[in-house]
Amino acid sequence: MPSTPAALAASDESAPELVPPRRHEDDRDAVAACQGGERQAFDRLVEKYQRDVYRLCYRYVNNHQDANDMAQEVFLKAYRALDRFRGDSSFSTWLYRIAVNTCLNFRASRKPEAAELPESLADKAQGALERLERDERSRLVREAVTRLPEKQRATLILKIYHDLTHEEVAGILGSTVGTVKANLFHALGNLRKMLAAEARQ
C-alpha cells in the first residue's frame, strides 16, 4: 500500500503492472489450467486473491458479514465467467472489475450498515487507549469512505488501498486516467471535509 505521495507516484512510474510479471505468468497458467478443467487451479487463485477481494468488499460495506458474502459472490462470478476470460487484461484487473461491480450492485440493493467485526477477546484484554483511538479513527474514516460518491469511492479504494496504477483503475472503472486523477483528488478533499465536519460536531 503506498503510504506517501511519493510512493503513490512511484507506483505509476516504476510499477505499471498490478503484480510482478512472474505472478502474471502464474495467474495465466492457473487460468489456463482452470479453463482446461483443472478444478484445483481455481482454488489456487482463490487462495491468492481472497485477501484482496475481501478487503475491497469490506471497504464498500464496512462490516465483516457482508464482506464475506460478497467475497464469495465475487469468486463465484469469476468462476462462472472464467471461460470468457481471454487475457486482454491481467487476471487480477479482471477480478477487481468483477469485485467493484459486485460491490456497486450490492450497495444498490442494500442499505449500508456500519456494524463492525466484533473485537476479539485479546483486543479487549489489551485495551490500550492508544489502540482504541487509532481504531476509532480508522472506523470513522472507513465510514466516511462509504459515504463518498460512487466513482470517487471506487477510485480511492482501488488506488489507495489496493496499490493500483491510475491506468489500471481507469481500466477497471471504464474511465480515463484524467478522470481517475480528478476523482481521486475530489475524493481526498471530500474525505477531509467530512471528517472535519464530524470532528466539529
Binding site: 500500500m1 474514516v141 469512505v145
Partner: peptide, 10 residues
Amino acid sequence: GLALAVGADV
C-alpha cells in the same frame, strides 16, 4: 485527506 485515508486499516 490522503493522510487520513492511508491510516484507516480494515
